[in-house]
């Protein structure tokens, strides 16, 4: 006993720097023993890159967004709302087929279809992004409260059971019927319906996660609830939130087309993809004018399909089960 305690009390005198050296990380050596420098986002990105179609579409969408922003400032661009006058006849330049002057032709009142399509894409993408963002923000807030607060759980569930029963289309129609058509009312009408699914999803995930040991430990250490939600729970949900957001964009664009179709969309002075398709539909009986329907439809299809595929590919990539 005595010998040991003497040894321990003198231990600091015996030590010198030669006994220690710095630990160096050598990845190659470390890998042999099972160490991995796993990084969630790195792996997600790596497995996303493996899906070549999705990467290609991501580039396409990126280019479209960049082009839509830059397009009005490029040379030789016409105004999307100005009615052009044919100089020889002095009347409106109606239904001119695609030419060097009007790249995608003109519509039935003499507006330039090329610039209208890009202005319309800008409007539709704007609506899509705002709706998706609102959906995510409101959905996460409500979902987090719903899943995390035990007091609020029962009342929100009751409200949800009722709200869930209301057909989305009906709400969309009714809201846009009552509010006058404009970009903000369309966005409001879509936001009213959009967040419910998101909230339910977040709630279900949080209910699964909230009672795990690490959250219990956090709580015992006195971490405030908002911090547990933001730091402990939401990172788990990032990938799925991104998925839902990228899917919300094509659905918002589609809903805009739907509302325009039934006569509740934006006024014609405000070009959007829904508006353009609707204008083109009126003229579809004459085969020469079908270009007015085909051009906006093609742009719309590319955008919606691209977002859909990117969203799904990203969700697959973000699932840790698919990481190597």
């Amino acid at each position: 006993m005595g010998i040991f305690s003497e040894e321990i009390s003198n231990i600091s005198q015996k030590s010198n720097e030669k006994l220690f050296d710095f630990a160096v990380v050598d990845e190659q050596k470390a890998e042999q023993t099972g160490y991995s420098n796993y990084s969630y986002w790195h792996s997600t990105w790596q497995s996303f890159l493996k899906n070549r179609l999705a990467v290609f579409l991501l580039v396409v969408v990126g280019l479209i967004i960049a082009f839509v922003i830059v397009q009005p400032y490029l040379p030789f661009q016409k105004s999307p709302t100005e009615i052009y006058i044919d100089e020889q006849t002095g009347s409106q330049a109606r239904n001119i087929s695609p030419s060097s002057e009007f790249w995608f032709g003109t519509n039935s009142i003499g507006q330039d279809l090329w610039s209208r399509i890009w202005a319309g894409t800008r409007t539709s993408l704007f609506i899509g992004f705002v709706v998706a963002l609102a959906e995510v923000v409101v959905g996460i807030s409500v979902g987090a409260l719903w899943g995390f607060s035990r007091k609020l759980e029962a009342p929100i569930t009751q409200v949800y059971n009722i709200v869930e029963n209301i057909p989305t289309t009906i709400v969309l129609i009714l809201m846009s019927y009552i509010l006058r058509p404009s970009i903000s009312t369309i966005i409001i009408a879509m936001c009213i319906t959009g967040w419910v699914e998101m909230a339910r999803f977040i709630r279900n995930q949080i209910v699964i996660l909230r009672d795990r040991e690490y959250n219990l430990a956090s709580k015992c250490l006195g971490t405030p609830s908002y911090r547990i939600i933001i730091k402990n729970l939401l990172p788990y949900l990032i990938s799925v939130i991104m998925l839902r957001m990228s899917l919300a964009i094509p659905f918002a664009i589609g809903a805009e087309v739907f509302l325009t179709y039934i006569g509740l969309g934006l006024p014609i002075s405000e070009p959007s993809l829904g508006n353009l398709i609707n204008e083109g539909r009126v003229l579809m009986m004459s085969p020469d004018l079908r270009y007015q329907l085909i051009f906006p439809s093609v742009v719309l299809s590319i955008i919606t399909i691209a977002f859909y595929i990117i969203g799904n590919a990203f969700a697959d990539a973000a699932d840790p089960k698919n990481h190597v």
């Binding site: 094509p250 664009i253 589609g254 087309v257 739907f258 179709y261 398709i277 539909r281 579809m284 079908r290 329907l293 439809s297 719309l300 299809s301 919606t304 399909i305 977002f307 859909y308 595929i309």
Partner: peptide, 18 residues
């Protein structure tokens, strides 16, 4: 499936009719 789910129904309905 991707086409039908992603593209708004109005668009392909019109093209089918056309």
């Amino acid at each position: 499936i991707v086409f039908v789910v992603a593209v708004p129904a109005a668009v392909y309905y019109i093209f089918i009719q056309m």
